[in-house]
Design a protein around this nucleic acid. Structure first.
Lengths: 140, 140
DNA sequence: TTCTAGTTTATAATAATTCTAAACTAGAAA
DNA sequence: TTTCTAGTTTAGAATTATTATAAACTAGAA
Protein backbone atom coordinates (compact mmCIF):
# COMPACT_ATOMS: atom_id res chain seq x y z
CA UNK A 1 0.00 0.00 0.00
CA UNK A 2 2.78 2.40 0.91
CA UNK A 3 4.50 1.31 -2.25
CA UNK A 4 1.33 1.97 -4.22
CA UNK A 5 1.11 5.47 -2.76
CA UNK A 6 4.73 6.09 -3.57
CA UNK A 7 4.18 5.11 -7.15
CA UNK A 8 1.33 7.51 -7.48
CA UNK A 9 3.27 10.28 -5.81
CA UNK A 10 6.24 9.60 -8.04
CA UNK A 11 4.02 9.92 -11.07
CA UNK A 12 2.51 13.16 -9.82
CA UNK A 13 5.96 14.60 -9.18
CA UNK A 14 7.12 13.51 -12.59
CA UNK A 15 4.18 15.18 -14.29
CA UNK A 16 4.53 18.39 -12.30
CA UNK A 17 8.22 18.59 -13.08
CA UNK A 18 7.33 18.82 -16.78
CA UNK A 19 4.60 21.39 -16.29
CA UNK A 20 1.88 18.80 -16.82
CA UNK A 21 -1.00 19.16 -14.40
CA UNK A 22 -1.48 15.72 -12.83
CA UNK A 23 -5.07 15.07 -13.81
CA UNK A 24 -6.82 11.78 -13.05
CA UNK A 25 -6.54 10.78 -16.69
CA UNK A 26 -2.83 11.50 -16.99
CA UNK A 27 -2.06 9.66 -13.77
CA UNK A 28 -4.08 6.67 -14.93
CA UNK A 29 -2.31 6.59 -18.29
CA UNK A 30 1.09 7.10 -16.70
CA UNK A 31 0.45 4.15 -14.38
CA UNK A 32 -0.44 1.97 -17.32
CA UNK A 33 2.73 2.99 -19.14
CA UNK A 34 5.37 3.28 -16.44
CA UNK A 35 4.34 1.07 -13.53
CA UNK A 36 6.06 -2.09 -14.64
CA UNK A 37 9.85 -2.40 -14.87
CA UNK A 38 9.29 -3.97 -18.25
CA UNK A 39 9.24 -1.59 -21.21
CA UNK A 40 7.04 -2.18 -24.24
CA UNK A 41 5.88 -0.91 -27.61
CA UNK A 42 2.37 0.34 -28.20
CA UNK A 43 0.05 2.33 -30.43
CA UNK A 44 -2.74 4.68 -29.41
CA UNK A 45 -5.14 1.91 -30.37
CA UNK A 46 -3.58 -0.71 -28.09
CA UNK A 47 -3.17 1.76 -25.24
CA UNK A 48 -6.81 2.76 -25.58
CA UNK A 49 -7.86 -0.90 -25.33
CA UNK A 50 -5.69 -1.39 -22.27
CA UNK A 51 -7.04 1.68 -20.48
CA UNK A 52 -10.68 1.29 -21.46
CA UNK A 53 -10.96 -2.48 -21.34
CA UNK A 54 -14.23 -4.26 -20.57
CA UNK A 55 -16.26 -1.46 -22.05
CA UNK A 56 -15.22 0.89 -19.25
CA UNK A 57 -14.84 4.32 -20.71
CA UNK A 58 -12.39 5.83 -18.30
CA UNK A 59 -10.46 8.07 -20.66
CA UNK A 60 -11.53 9.45 -24.02
CA UNK A 61 -9.60 8.62 -27.14
CA UNK A 62 -8.81 12.32 -27.68
CA UNK A 63 -7.19 12.46 -24.26
CA UNK A 64 -5.14 9.39 -24.98
CA UNK A 65 -3.85 11.10 -28.12
CA UNK A 66 -3.15 14.32 -26.21
CA UNK A 67 -1.44 12.55 -23.35
CA UNK A 68 0.76 10.36 -25.50
CA UNK A 69 1.88 13.48 -27.35
CA UNK A 70 2.52 15.35 -24.11
CA UNK A 71 4.50 12.43 -22.66
CA UNK A 72 6.52 12.15 -25.85
CA UNK A 73 7.37 15.87 -25.77
CA UNK A 74 8.30 15.56 -22.11
CA UNK A 75 10.68 12.74 -23.01
CA UNK A 76 8.79 9.97 -21.21
CA UNK A 77 8.06 8.12 -24.41
CA UNK A 78 9.92 7.65 -27.65
CA UNK A 79 8.27 7.60 -31.03
CA UNK A 80 9.40 4.59 -33.02
CA UNK A 81 10.53 4.84 -36.62
CA UNK A 82 8.63 2.44 -38.86
CA UNK A 83 7.36 2.24 -42.40
CA UNK A 84 3.76 1.96 -41.27
CA UNK A 85 1.13 4.67 -41.33
CA UNK A 86 0.43 4.52 -37.66
CA UNK A 87 2.42 5.92 -34.77
CA UNK A 88 4.29 3.46 -32.61
CA UNK A 89 5.69 4.35 -29.22
CA UNK A 90 8.23 2.81 -26.92
CA UNK A 91 8.24 3.14 -23.13
CA UNK A 92 11.96 2.39 -23.30
CA UNK A 93 13.49 5.81 -23.77
CA UNK A 94 17.08 4.66 -23.30
CA UNK A 95 19.22 4.50 -26.39
CA UNK A 96 18.55 1.15 -27.99
CA UNK A 97 17.90 -0.43 -31.33
CA UNK A 98 15.36 -2.59 -33.14
CA UNK A 99 14.93 -5.61 -35.32
CA UNK A 100 12.11 -4.97 -37.78
CA UNK A 101 10.60 -8.17 -39.15
CA UNK A 102 9.32 -7.39 -42.62
CA UNK A 103 7.11 -10.48 -42.63
CA UNK A 104 5.24 -10.05 -39.38
CA UNK A 105 5.95 -6.30 -39.27
CA UNK A 106 6.99 -6.63 -35.66
CA UNK A 107 9.65 -4.77 -33.76
CA UNK A 108 11.90 -6.28 -31.13
CA UNK A 109 14.38 -4.45 -28.99
CA UNK A 110 18.09 -4.82 -29.40
CA UNK A 111 19.98 -3.89 -26.28
CA UNK A 112 22.29 -0.92 -26.53
CA UNK A 113 25.32 -3.10 -25.82
CA UNK A 114 24.61 -5.41 -28.76
CA UNK A 115 25.62 -2.78 -31.30
CA UNK A 116 28.82 -0.78 -31.45
CA UNK A 117 29.65 1.99 -33.85
CA UNK A 118 33.24 2.75 -34.70
CA UNK A 119 32.48 5.70 -36.96
CA UNK A 120 29.72 8.28 -36.74
CA UNK A 121 29.35 11.34 -39.00
CA UNK A 122 29.53 14.94 -37.82
CA UNK A 123 26.02 16.47 -37.73
CA UNK A 124 25.19 19.40 -40.08
CA UNK A 125 26.29 22.85 -38.84
CA UNK A 126 24.30 24.18 -35.93
CA UNK A 127 22.75 20.81 -35.12
CA UNK A 128 23.44 18.36 -32.35
CA UNK A 129 22.96 14.62 -32.28
CA UNK A 130 20.06 13.85 -30.01
CA UNK A 131 19.80 10.15 -30.54
CA UNK A 132 21.09 7.39 -32.77
CA UNK A 133 19.01 4.38 -33.68
CA UNK A 134 19.80 1.32 -35.69
CA UNK A 135 17.01 -0.60 -37.37
CA UNK A 136 17.91 -4.02 -38.68
CA UNK A 137 15.37 -5.28 -41.17
CA UNK A 138 15.11 -9.04 -41.03
CA UNK A 139 13.25 -11.65 -43.06
CA UNK A 140 13.07 -15.44 -43.44
CA UNK B 1 17.66 11.52 -79.01
CA UNK B 2 19.34 8.14 -79.15
CA UNK B 3 20.11 8.59 -75.49
CA UNK B 4 16.50 9.42 -74.83
CA UNK B 5 15.40 6.28 -76.64
CA UNK B 6 17.88 4.24 -74.69
CA UNK B 7 16.57 5.54 -71.42
CA UNK B 8 13.07 4.60 -72.37
CA UNK B 9 14.14 1.17 -73.55
CA UNK B 10 16.12 0.65 -70.37
CA UNK B 11 13.04 1.47 -68.34
CA UNK B 12 10.89 -0.90 -70.40
CA UNK B 13 13.43 -3.70 -69.95
CA UNK B 14 13.62 -3.02 -66.25
CA UNK B 15 9.84 -3.19 -65.85
CA UNK B 16 9.52 -6.35 -67.95
CA UNK B 17 12.27 -8.06 -65.97
CA UNK B 18 10.09 -7.69 -62.85
CA UNK B 19 6.92 -8.88 -64.53
CA UNK B 20 5.51 -5.36 -64.69
CA UNK B 21 3.83 -4.59 -67.99
CA UNK B 22 5.41 -1.37 -69.24
CA UNK B 23 2.33 0.79 -69.50
CA UNK B 24 2.50 4.47 -70.47
CA UNK B 25 1.84 5.44 -66.87
CA UNK B 26 4.54 3.23 -65.37
CA UNK B 27 7.10 4.39 -67.90
CA UNK B 28 6.23 8.02 -67.20
CA UNK B 29 6.54 7.52 -63.45
CA UNK B 30 9.76 5.53 -63.81
CA UNK B 31 11.28 8.34 -65.88
CA UNK B 32 10.37 10.83 -63.21
CA UNK B 33 11.95 8.67 -60.54
CA UNK B 34 15.01 7.13 -62.16
CA UNK B 35 16.11 9.41 -65.00
CA UNK B 36 18.47 11.59 -63.01
CA UNK B 37 21.67 10.29 -61.47
CA UNK B 38 20.63 12.12 -58.35
CA UNK B 39 18.56 10.16 -55.87
CA UNK B 40 15.87 11.76 -53.74
CA UNK B 41 13.15 11.30 -51.13
CA UNK B 42 9.48 11.67 -51.93
CA UNK B 43 5.92 10.98 -50.85
CA UNK B 44 3.00 9.99 -53.04
CA UNK B 45 1.78 13.56 -52.68
CA UNK B 46 4.97 15.16 -53.98
CA UNK B 47 5.32 12.59 -56.76
CA UNK B 48 1.75 13.25 -57.82
CA UNK B 49 2.47 16.99 -58.01
CA UNK B 50 5.59 16.37 -60.07
CA UNK B 51 3.83 14.06 -62.53
CA UNK B 52 0.60 16.01 -62.84
CA UNK B 53 1.96 19.54 -62.63
CA UNK B 54 0.24 22.48 -64.27
CA UNK B 55 -3.15 20.90 -63.89
CA UNK B 56 -2.27 18.19 -66.41
CA UNK B 57 -3.90 14.99 -65.26
CA UNK B 58 -1.60 12.48 -66.85
CA UNK B 59 -1.75 9.75 -64.22
CA UNK B 60 -4.42 9.13 -61.62
CA UNK B 61 -3.59 9.22 -57.94
CA UNK B 62 -4.64 5.57 -57.56
CA UNK B 63 -2.11 4.57 -60.21
CA UNK B 64 0.61 6.53 -58.49
CA UNK B 65 -0.12 4.60 -55.31
CA UNK B 66 -0.20 1.29 -57.18
CA UNK B 67 2.98 2.01 -59.08
CA UNK B 68 4.97 3.17 -56.08
CA UNK B 69 3.96 -0.02 -54.29
CA UNK B 70 4.87 -2.15 -57.29
CA UNK B 71 8.26 -0.42 -57.64
CA UNK B 72 8.92 -0.87 -53.93
CA UNK B 73 8.14 -4.60 -54.11
CA UNK B 74 10.35 -4.90 -57.17
CA UNK B 75 13.17 -3.31 -55.21
CA UNK B 76 13.41 -0.10 -57.24
CA UNK B 77 12.39 2.06 -54.30
CA UNK B 78 12.99 1.86 -50.59
CA UNK B 79 10.42 2.80 -47.98
CA UNK B 80 11.90 5.13 -45.42
CA UNK B 81 11.44 4.66 -41.69
CA UNK B 82 10.08 7.81 -40.07
CA UNK B 83 7.85 8.80 -37.20
CA UNK B 84 5.33 10.46 -39.50
CA UNK B 85 1.98 9.11 -40.59
CA UNK B 86 2.77 9.26 -44.23
CA UNK B 87 4.88 6.98 -46.37
CA UNK B 88 8.24 8.30 -47.48
CA UNK B 89 10.25 6.71 -50.25
CA UNK B 90 13.84 6.90 -51.35
CA UNK B 91 15.08 6.40 -54.90
CA UNK B 92 18.44 5.52 -53.38
CA UNK B 93 18.14 1.80 -52.76
CA UNK B 94 21.78 1.31 -51.80
CA UNK B 95 22.52 0.73 -48.15
CA UNK B 96 22.79 4.14 -46.54
CA UNK B 97 21.71 6.08 -43.50
CA UNK B 98 19.80 9.22 -42.56
CA UNK B 99 19.88 12.30 -40.43
CA UNK B 100 16.38 13.06 -39.19
CA UNK B 101 15.91 16.69 -38.18
CA UNK B 102 13.27 16.74 -35.48
CA UNK B 103 12.69 20.47 -35.98
CA UNK B 104 12.09 20.60 -39.72
CA UNK B 105 11.17 16.89 -39.88
CA UNK B 106 13.50 16.50 -42.84
CA UNK B 107 15.67 13.58 -43.81
CA UNK B 108 19.11 13.85 -45.34
CA UNK B 109 21.22 11.02 -46.59
CA UNK B 110 24.35 9.85 -44.86
CA UNK B 111 26.66 7.99 -47.15
CA UNK B 112 27.29 4.36 -46.35
CA UNK B 113 30.98 5.03 -45.74
CA UNK B 114 30.28 7.66 -43.06
CA UNK B 115 29.14 5.06 -40.58
CA UNK B 116 30.95 1.96 -39.45
CA UNK B 117 29.68 -0.71 -37.12
CA UNK B 118 32.08 -2.82 -35.14
CA UNK B 119 29.45 -5.01 -33.52
CA UNK B 120 26.15 -6.25 -34.91
CA UNK B 121 23.78 -8.69 -33.18
CA UNK B 122 22.89 -12.14 -34.48
CA UNK B 123 19.35 -12.13 -35.92
CA UNK B 124 16.63 -14.26 -34.26
CA UNK B 125 16.58 -17.94 -35.27
CA UNK B 126 15.38 -18.57 -38.80
CA UNK B 127 15.76 -14.95 -39.85
CA UNK B 128 18.33 -13.25 -42.01
CA UNK B 129 19.47 -9.64 -41.96
CA UNK B 130 18.16 -7.96 -45.05
CA UNK B 131 19.26 -4.44 -44.38
CA UNK B 132 20.67 -2.25 -41.65
CA UNK B 133 19.85 1.41 -41.31
CA UNK B 134 21.03 4.03 -38.91
CA UNK B 135 18.88 7.05 -38.20
CA UNK B 136 20.55 9.89 -36.35
CA UNK B 137 18.03 12.26 -34.83
CA UNK B 138 19.37 15.78 -34.74
CA UNK B 139 18.15 19.06 -33.29
CA UNK B 140 19.41 22.62 -32.70
C1' DT C 1 -7.65 -7.90 -86.10
C1' DT C 2 -9.42 -10.06 -82.08
C1' DC C 3 -9.29 -11.17 -77.47
C1' DT C 4 -8.28 -11.09 -72.61
C1' DA C 5 -5.62 -10.64 -68.46
C1' DG C 6 -3.60 -7.02 -66.47
C1' DT C 7 -3.97 -2.16 -65.66
C1' DT C 8 -5.99 2.33 -64.95
C1' DT C 9 -9.41 5.25 -63.26
C1' DA C 10 -12.96 7.93 -60.57
C1' DT C 11 -15.03 7.41 -56.69
C1' DA C 12 -16.36 5.35 -52.32
C1' DA C 13 -14.76 3.42 -48.09
C1' DT C 14 -11.67 3.06 -44.33
C1' DA C 15 -8.32 4.26 -40.85
C1' DA C 16 -5.53 7.26 -38.12
C1' DT C 17 -5.24 11.57 -36.49
C1' DT C 18 -6.35 16.40 -35.57
C1' DC C 19 -9.67 20.01 -34.72
C1' DT C 20 -13.45 22.31 -32.28
C1' DA C 21 -15.93 24.28 -28.90
C1' DA C 22 -18.56 23.22 -24.88
C1' DA C 23 -18.15 21.16 -20.24
C1' DC C 24 -15.24 20.08 -16.54
C1' DT C 25 -11.51 20.43 -12.86
C1' DA C 26 -7.04 21.36 -10.37
C1' DG C 27 -5.46 24.25 -7.57
C1' DA C 28 -4.36 29.28 -6.63
C1' DA C 29 -6.39 33.16 -4.48
C1' DA C 30 -9.98 35.33 -1.80
C1' DT D 1 -14.12 26.83 2.46
C1' DT D 2 -15.64 28.96 -1.65
C1' DT D 3 -14.70 31.24 -5.92
C1' DC D 4 -12.48 31.63 -10.07
C1' DT D 5 -9.97 30.59 -14.23
C1' DA D 6 -6.51 28.61 -17.12
C1' DG D 7 -5.66 24.28 -18.38
C1' DT D 8 -7.76 19.91 -19.56
C1' DT D 9 -11.11 16.61 -21.18
C1' DT D 10 -14.62 15.22 -24.15
C1' DA D 11 -17.79 13.77 -28.10
C1' DG D 12 -18.13 14.33 -32.37
C1' DA D 13 -16.88 16.59 -36.78
C1' DA D 14 -13.22 17.36 -40.04
C1' DT D 15 -9.12 16.19 -42.24
C1' DT D 16 -5.57 13.38 -44.31
C1' DA D 17 -3.46 9.29 -46.16
C1' DT D 18 -4.44 5.13 -47.96
C1' DT D 19 -7.01 1.11 -49.75
C1' DA D 20 -11.00 -0.99 -52.07
C1' DT D 21 -14.28 -1.33 -55.90
C1' DA D 22 -15.87 -2.14 -60.20
C1' DA D 23 -16.26 -0.33 -64.79
C1' DA D 24 -13.44 1.12 -68.80
C1' DC D 25 -9.20 0.71 -71.12
C1' DT D 26 -4.92 -1.37 -73.29
C1' DA D 27 -0.61 -4.21 -74.13
C1' DG D 28 0.55 -7.62 -76.56
C1' DA D 29 -0.23 -12.69 -77.55
C1' DA D 30 -2.76 -15.50 -80.76
Amino acid sequence: MANFMNQKNEIIKKLRSSGLRPTQQRVLIAKSLFDSDKTFHFTVETLNKKINKNGANKVSLATIYNTVEAFTCAGYLKEILTSKNKSYYDTNIKSHHHFYDEGSKELTDIHHSQIKLSKVPIPPKGKKIKNLEVVIRIQK
